[in-house]
Design a protein around this nucleic acid. Sequence first.
DNA 1: TTGAAAGCGCTAACAC
DNA 2: GTGTTAGCGCTTTCAA
Lengths: 343, 343
Amino acid sequence: MKPIRPSIKDIAAHLNVSVTTVSFVLNGKGPEMRISEEVIQKILGYAREINYRPNQLAQSLRTGKTNVIVFMVEDISNPFFARLARIIEVIAYQKGYKVIFCSNENDDRHTGELLQVFRDQQVTGYIIIPSAGAKKQIKALLQEGVPVILFDRYFPELETNYVVIDNENATYQATKHLIGNGYRKIGFVTIAASQTQMVDRLKGYKKAVKEAKLRSRVLELPFGEDASEGEEHMRKFFEANPDLDAVFFATNYLAQQGLLVMREHFPGKLHAWGIMSFDDNEFFRIHTPSISAVAQPLEEIGSKLMEIMLDLLKNEKKALHQVVLTARLQERDSSQQKDVKSL
Amino acid sequence: MKPIRPSIKDIAAHLNVSVTTVSFVLNGKGPEMRISEEVIQKILGYAREINYRPNQLAQSLRTGKTNVIVFMVEDISNPFFARLARIIEVIAYQKGYKVIFCSNENDDRHTGELLQVFRDQQVTGYIIIPSAGAKKQIKALLQEGVPVILFDRYFPELETNYVVIDNENATYQATKHLIGNGYRKIGFVTIAASQTQMVDRLKGYKKAVKEAKLRSRVLELPFGEDASEGEEHMRKFFEANPDLDAVFFATNYLAQQGLLVMREHFPGKLHAWGIMSFDDNEFFRIHTPSISAVAQPLEEIGSKLMEIMLDLLKNEKKALHQVVLTARLQERDSSQQKDVKSL
DNA sequence: TTGAAAGCGCTAACAC
DNA sequence: GTGTTAGCGCTTTCAA
């Protein structure tokens, strides 16, 4: 039933030329190999006629290139990653690459296992958000010489390509924005993690608070907690700090949990407090009050990642690309002038 | 620099056995082929020692099986699809399959192009949300004999595997719930599409409304509009129907757009109207008022899809799996008893 | 200018 | 029980 797909051999046989000639022509090396125009046209024409499509498996086996790019994130169902995936996908398919995606759940063992699988698959390139302790695995990958790009965070000690945003400056500016709008007792909710991006965000907050001679009030949630535990911690933190007048969530899921806590336990604060989140989100526009956020430039991150990837794939001598992009502060109602808000 | 990966041949050479023996043993056919326990252990031991991993490309070229499953949805950045992707992913990797995902943008040409690419890649199985006019492409795929499962919607005229939910009954029940809670003038916002799931949702709404001897008020947005056009249409619809006391959005992104419109142009209605959405969402819990929704059983859909896929992959004689799952009504504040609400 | 042939790593029919 | 060998479909060196 399954129609036998024509192979290069069939073409050669039909046209009374050798497979070599066909292969050369099909790979655009006809002119280079000085194959006669007549033969070239004959082959191209027939290939089109029978709708010839090369067997990519065979091609890959031979060349060692699979044209598959892995996109590994913490959790593909996180809207931030999902939207990025979408952007990467579009560019990759345009350029003839396929994307395999996967979630490492921020777990080192899982990261290692997945990378093992992909190595077996001879994956062509990697775009990775590394889990906290994945330095060794990443290093091993680098040593194989395959293109690897980290993003969102990176290992300063490792000479890798990466695309990140200026987390420190972004939180610094956003915190200053809150201060500028009259907030003085700003809580910062983050997770206890040594990952560069979280460290930098905390740094930015502390810098702004210190400059304004305010006291920093940080809640560091234990790493790896589930949502309900996090919510419980936040509830206690808000309770223990009744004088807070603003809160800054260091990631979008922390904001999500925090908003829920506020809604359920401190409904009054929802409109009284200044609220700021890292990572923007469609729903922050819809929420009442609408939530101000540090918006990562998703399009830019995605296209930069692919631009670098394509460059690494093309050029034998691999340059080092380390890109820091600027985030944008999306001001909304939740961070409006304090006095105006509390009216 | 790149360490040469040991091949089956290396093992054979090192152990003074033939590649056949090695191949059999490694594929667990040792006992079947009555290869001596001693040789089996020797091969297994050495393979483990040098950390042998088969070249999957060669394996695939030979067997024609790639162990790659395609997961094609409208838009992977839609949270509904992203969460489903996550569920599929976990199961697939556990079973030794890889998942390639892609978005067809609900566009037939795009669907066709993607399928072409995957056919070239010798993809092992397909899980697809078909775009509206993709019947022909799906049919072609079926004829190749590869496992195909549709979900979310399907083509009744095509004998395919599918996993869907009982859209009609779900909207019927949800509409009855609104009616039961005192709402009488319920608008239904949907898109003009012939896709089974949208047709069924509208049907369910109409049935409930008719049974209650109420008038149906439907806004059918033109297919393929962008968000801002949709919002404009909704604004006009709400304006033209000032007596509405509830609104039912037929998809999560329509709800998203609608909530924004209400927030910006009819803030009073946000608390006065009954609101219901199809497809649940984390943010519906956080929203004020929290939004009631018809929740699709994501876990169940995902595991059912993979269960069917694994069955199709395993069994030569392929059974037909047509599964209809039940959605769950998630009642929240936005659909509370009308009189209670308007207090 | 074109063709023959080796071989990528693996499977499996067939031979011994 | 184990080995020989012919491919899977393609690229590429070498020879003509």
